[in-house]
């Protein structure tokens, strides 16, 4: 048997063995991996409305239970109209409602913006007045550890609580990351729309500010409804079945 022939046969057998092994592993473990991702996403959603504490220890069962009991998922279209489940209108924006009983406590918007190095994904929860931020979490980013990566720290996220996305006259201004400490860097009447920046991470702050503005603007129609007190109850027809 010639050398080339031997090499070819050897490679073919090796490839076959490796592919079988890896495909078996990948397909077998896929279920676990997807469940992990979904659980992580839900945990972060719950964290944004303080249903789970940061750093707390929760089992998969706990997360599932808390989520099913408190969160309802609906979709709205660009004009803020709630899209009933099953209707296909093309562009639909997901909104998560945190409700106790029949009253809506807060609505949660998924954040997916461009950061300095990659996507920043998280959730922003707004109170039912449509103007005050109830919570903000970041669960995925590729920012520089120690600099832009600080956006995943509790201190940064907690600074958002209580800030407003509307200005003094009720106009939409979104929430921005200041350069430095908000108390000193920003005039007093605007401080409610700014959070402290991260030293050494100006660019990350800028990207986050721009991204949040974009997303909150897209969701303005529904925020306006909350401000006008028109969305205090869970819309019956719109409830989407949450995926297991």
């Amino acid at each position: 048997m010639s050398d080339t022939m031997r090499s070819l046969i050897f490679s073919a057998v090796l490839c076959l063995v490796c592919s079988l092994l890896l495909t078996a592993a990948a397909t077998g473990l896929k279920g676990y991996q997807q469940e992990n991702v979904e659980l992580d996403r839900r945990r972060n959603l719950l964290k944004s409305v303080n249903l789970v504490a940061a750093g707390g220890d929760y089992s998969a069962e706990d997360i599932r239970r808390l989520y099913d009991a408190n969160i309802a998922e609906i979709a709205v279209d660009r004009s803020g109209r709630v899209v009933p489940a099953g209707e296909d209108t093309g562009v639909s924006l997901p909104v998560y409602l945190y409700q106790t009983g029949d009253a809506i406590q807060a609505y949660i918007i998924p954040i997916n913006t461009r950061g300095l190095w990659g996507k920043i994904k998280g959730y922003m929860a707004l109170e039912s007045d449509g103007a005050t931020i109830a919570g903000f979490t970041v669960y995925q980013h590729s920012e520089t550890p120690g600099l832009g990566g600080e956006i995943e720290q509790r201190w940064f996220q907690e600074n958002f609580v209580g800030k407003k996305i509307v200005g003094r006259y009720g106009d939409f201004v979104s929430v921005s990351v200041a350069k430095g400490v908000a108390d000193t860097a920003v005039p007093e009447e605007k401080q409610m729309n700014y959070v402290d920046g991260i030293s050494g991470a100006t660019l990350t702050g800028r990207f986050l500010t721009a991204g949040l503005k974009d997303i909150l603007e897209t969701y303005e129609p529904i925020s306006v409804q909350f401000r006008g007190q028109r969305m205090l109850r869970m819309p019956q027809a719109a409830e989407k079945k949450t995926q297991p």
Binding site: S11, L14, C18, L22, Y32, Q33
Partner: peptide, 21 residues
């Protein structure tokens, strides 16, 4: 190439296990 293939396969296995558990 054979060495790389063996090593890469083991690493993929390790990565899949870590992401699952």
């Amino acid at each position: 190439i054979v060495e790389l293939t063996v090593i890469a396969s083991l690493v993929i296995l390790a990565d899949e296990l870590i992401r699952a558990f």
